[in-house]
Computed example of a mutant assay.
Amino acid sequence: MSRRPAVAALGGGHGLFASLQALQYVTDQITAIVTVADDGGSSGRLREEFDILPPGDLRMALAALCDPSEWGLQWRDALQHRFAGDGPLGGHPLGNLMIASLWDLLGDPVAGLDLVGRLVEARGRVLPMAIEPVRIEAQVRGADPDQPEQISTVTGQVKVATTTGDVLSVGLHPDPPRPCTEALDAVGDADWIVLGPGSWFTSVIPHLLVPDLRDALVHTKARRLLTLNVTMHTGETAGYTAADHLEVLAAHAPELHLDVVLADPSVVTDSGDQLRDAAQSLGATVVFTQVADSDAPGTHDPLRLAAAYRDIFEL
């Protein structure tokens, strides 16, 4: 490529962490756009006590982008350090408290994240998908095992992620949430959009439920890459095939066009024709390549994922 591409990477949690690690081998122009629906653990406690964005997924994205120098790696470890014990600090990572403190001082979530990024010499920028915390509300069939056909509303990221029922659709409250203007600009200025990997209903789909962000994704000049998980049958997507994941995406954003779907061959349970057909309905081709970590089942290998991103960006 004549220059390194500008990439906007959307997701949350461990999936986005892996994607950001891989992207650093490919480009120095990265913007992470992170879901803000977490309501569990330290993030849940902080958002309830201070009415702030849940900082955990934002912290993880900053940790993923820390400069690989001694300074950057020490700050990565500091951000991720979690206090032990049952006291008030127990379970809180230092990075969550640092981010919450800067938001309190500056009164601006983007300015606070940018300041942490400068401190850790982040190789990219981290932005929230919305500037207010959101809650996920899912329509679930069989959430009550005694009533397997009943459809009920399950509220909260943790409950949706761990439901034993079948998630049919998800929405956000408030609806619509206020978007992050800088995230919209990043999508508009990107050469490539990378959506996923991550928990489908709680890390990937929520970005499509912020109307202004969805419109930006639909109308951007950037090419769009969807990275599938290397494990299909998580709690919230139990029984889903790779093609089912694409159909869910299309149901929540029918106007969204994709260019490429990246899939590890291990996630395809048939000849691949169903996945190809589902991708084609979204305007995309499927690239099959091994990106899973052989030594850590269910996770992406950063170097393999980086090689896949490099090859796709050069198409």
Rank of each mutant, 00 (worst) to 15 (best):
residue 182 E to P: 03
residue 165 G to E: 10
residue 73 L to I: 06
residue 283 G to C: 11
residue 143 A to W: 07
residue 31 T to S: 04
residue 95 G to W: 07
residue 313 F to G: 01
residue 312 I to W: 00
residue 20 L to V: 00
residue 29 Q to I: 05
residue 293 D to C: 04
residue 280 Q to L: 14
residue 281 S to F: 13
residue 53 L to D: 10
residue 215 D to C: 07
residue 297 P to E: 05
residue 55 P to G: 04
residue 124 G to F: 01
residue 315 L to V: 00
residue 63 A to L: 15
residue 32 A to Q: 01
residue 61 A to C: 10
residue 29 Q to G: 05
residue 222 A to C: 01
residue 154 V to M: 05
residue 300 H to F: 06
residue 71 W to E: 03
residue 161 A to I: 09
residue 14 H to N: 15
residue 303 L to H: 14
residue 152 S to Y: 10
residue 218 V to T: 00
residue 79 L to E: 14
residue 286 V to M: 10
residue 136 I to Q: 06
residue 188 G to K: 03
residue 262 L to P: 04
residue 185 D to R: 12
residue 52 I to S: 07
residue 196 G to E: 07
residue 85 G to V: 05
residue 88 P to L: 09
residue 169 S to R: 09
residue 17 F to D: 04
residue 248 V to I: 15
residue 43 S to N: 06
residue 78 A to D: 04
residue 56 G to I: 05
residue 83 F to S: 04
residue 140 V to M: 08
residue 261 V to D: 05
residue 49 E to L: 05
residue 89 L to K: 08
residue 159 K to Y: 15
residue 94 L to F: 12
residue 173 H to Q: 07
residue 170 V to T: 10
residue 1 M to A: 03
residue 123 R to Y: 08
residue 111 A to N: 15
residue 176 P to K: 11
residue 89 L to Q: 05
residue 137 E to N: 11
residue 300 H to M: 02
residue 67 D to G: 02
residue 49 E to R: 09
residue 142 G to Y: 13
residue 296 A to S: 10
residue 263 A to Q: 05
residue 206 P to M: 05
residue 105 L to E: 12
residue 75 W to Y: 09
residue 101 S to A: 14
residue 233 H to F: 13
residue 296 A to P: 15
residue 216 A to M: 00
residue 232 M to V: 00
residue 305 L to M: 08
residue 200 W to Q: 12
residue 166 D to N: 03
residue 172 L to C: 07
residue 243 A to N: 07
residue 155 T to K: 08
residue 106 L to P: 12
residue 160 V to L: 01
residue 185 D to M: 07
residue 201 F to K: 02
residue 225 L to H: 01
residue 79 L to T: 11
residue 116 V to S: 04
residue 62 L to C: 12
residue 181 T to K: 07
residue 242 A to V: 12
residue 163 T to I: 08
residue 74 Q to P: 01
residue 9 A to C: 13
residue 59 R to T: 03
residue 173 H to F: 14
residue 60 M to R: 14
residue 248 V to E: 13
residue 75 W to D: 02
residue 198 G to D: 04
residue 46 L to D: 03
residue 229 N to R: 09
residue 61 A to H: 07
residue 71 W to R: 03
residue 98 M to A: 08
residue 42 S to C: 06
residue 171 G to C: 06
residue 298 G to T: 01
residue 159 K to T: 10
residue 120 V to N: 13
residue 209 L to K: 13
residue 6 A to F: 09
residue 256 L to D: 01
residue 164 T to G: 14
residue 234 T to V: 15
residue 31 T to K: 01
residue 255 E to Q: 11
residue 281 S to Y: 12
residue 184 L to D: 05
residue 242 A to G: 12
residue 35 T to D: 01
residue 178 R to W: 12
residue 209 L to D: 03
residue 202 T to R: 14
residue 206 P to A: 01
